[in-house]
Design a protein around this nucleic acid. Sequence first.
DNA 1: CACCCTCGAGTTCA
DNA 2: CTCGAGGGTG
Length: 775
Amino acid sequence: MADELVPQHADPALASAKAEVDELTSRILGLRDAYYERDEVLVSDADYDAMMRRLEALEQQYPELQSQDSPTLSVGGRAATLFDPVRHAERMLSLDNVFSLDDFSAWATKVERDSGRNVDFLCELKIDGLAINLRYENGRLVSAATRGDGVVGEDVTENVRYIEGIPARLEGSGHPPLVEVRGEIFFPVESFRALNAEQAAAGERVFANPRNAASGSLRQKAEGKNEAGLDLMHRRLSRLRMLVHGLGAWENPPVTTQSEIYAVLASWGLPTSRHFRVARSSAEAVDFIEYYGEHRDSVEHEIDGIVIKVDELALHAELGATSRAPRWAIAYKYPPEQVNTKLLDIVVSVGRTGRATPFAVMEPARVAGSVVRQATLHNQDVVKAKGILIGDTVVLRKAGDVIPEVLGPVLELRDGTEREFVMPTTCPECGTPLAPAKEGDIDLRCPNARSCPAQVRGRVEHVGSRGALDVEGLGEVSAAALTQPLVPELPPLTTEAGLFELTLADLFPIEVVVRDSETGLPKLLDDGSLKVETPFRRNRQKRDGEFDPTRVAPAPSAPGSAAAPTASSVISGPAFAGDADSVPSSQAIALITNLELAKTKELWRILVSLSIRHVGPVAARALASYFGSLDAIRAATRDELAAVDGVGTIIADALLDWFEVDWHQEIIRRWADAGVQFSTPGHPGPGAAAATDGPLAGLTVVATGSLDGFTREGAVEAIIAAGGKSASSVSKKTDFVAAGPGAGSKLTKAEELGVRIIDAAQFAVLLKGGPTALD
DNA sequence: CACCCTCGAGTTCA
DNA sequence: CTCGAGGGTG
């Protein structure tokens, strides 16, 4: 869907914010002009400050709205006092922005109407860097200046001389005696990563993004530096690059189009971009926009949009310019991949393994198409390394367009009220002192595995998860409901030991406090009492006659599982039909039914659901197929366990340790008593895994994306059933990558490594007949 | 000791 | 889906 590749800004809040930003910008610039040029004071300082603060706030919320001549960028004149001012020979205009394809098309239509004919559009990448004006006199570079406010910029000539690719002297001939060239200075993404790695290693501040790095590098001052400092400064400058994209006034140019101008610039030895195209229609321009929306990462620099210019120079004069921007060009801005937002707090959560993980709680912010309010910070060292303080404005992005990540603070916006994050010494859920699992570990853990509510809740949820017993109806919400105390009684589950003993009567009384999805605070009723829900019971329907539990359809039974219990078999025995007013909800019946189904699932799934350290689906499969039963695993020695392929001494120790613990033994006993099957029927007993044969013997296959005819799980099962190895990541050892639509980085990796990629149909053929069937 | 792999965690969407 | 951490293997 095109909308997804290039999300539309249908957001009305954005549109009104843009109007306000434009209004504020022009008013403030007008006031400044009056003040600096004519010594007129038109508003009070307080009003002026209020306008600036409002503009800053808006730009912080919507960074894409910040124009290059925004007054917030030159506030305080800090940079202007460091570098000498330079007056540009010709005003450097900025570009108007559009934020949706519809708005772009509207602009193109208007341009064609005003021109009275079809128009060719020159499309190029909008580099996220610093606008620079180079002045050449008689072919020699005499001045390089930042954009500044468009009229006066800062003189950075000496620094620019160290940038590779900017000629001190123009090549060829035919250039006017005085010519101004416009371009963008940027930090290539690769160099930026290297720079930040070096900065971090040296304990220096890291830059939030390549643009900041470019700006910081270009604005370095030589004064007061010793030899080593100068050397460092020059090395950093030499990593910068520039691409030129425009030319100041040129009387009677020998060309008629903008694209020809680029050829001329290149012939003078100036660096021009390879990524441009002349579009014969606005539809072709849209193709260009969409293409680079998907391939933003394939370019050496960051891009924040696409610039579309009318190609024909004669039309530039005809269309003219407003006071701020030309009418013959527009910038299409992609939704930002990075935004600024406020770090409200750093909170620590405890997972099922007891690991204490700090995460950032932020003011909700839109990034790459969704609203984010939390992001993991991994551990206290990462918090420190990022240098963020609670209360900071932070840079937020989505790694791989999915996972929210806090990059770092915006140091300029600190006001002194920020405070450092202190890692708690006790578990935020149960108060037990946190400690590393072993000497030297960075991660802190809550050692109260048995009764820490967070860990019990996490483990119960884990049992229901897809990689374990895959119990429909046992997710985050039910796990929390089952493990929360029923004031004043104990919760239905104090550990996972009782999970398979649950009955409808146990679920029936559970009440859950309803929380506001925005604030996370409990909702209150009008009388001030807590609003609660009863997810496992609902009011008896009076009119529709009696409740008939057998009419509630059970979840579809897993293929191959014999004699799936039905809803009626769950209810039978000491039937439970609720009380006078209410009956079990369909959720309650589904949960009990699906737990019943889970008892006879494959041994490896049972193993995974025990939450033994390091025993995930892969190790569990290896153990299950080798030993065939939990008893055999329990009876095995350390060496016998470690003999299993994929299991080493550490996992062996983890298993032995796990079986030692008495409440773990209780889990096994009670699960077994409740009917959980801890063995694979028909398994011959411990021994080498059956020699793998089948069409895929000896082959490693990775499935990614949505493969027609397979679920994710199903594809994995099919690979194993065919005698192959199903891996979760692509490496040199991978033989095939079966990729469907929606495949992401794994597909890229496969292309990089030259691993053979097949589609769903070929995958099916491969499963049946092996690799030879493909050719 | 590299490499490659798996585990575990957090997050967001339809 | 991606990352860091840490295990297993050659």
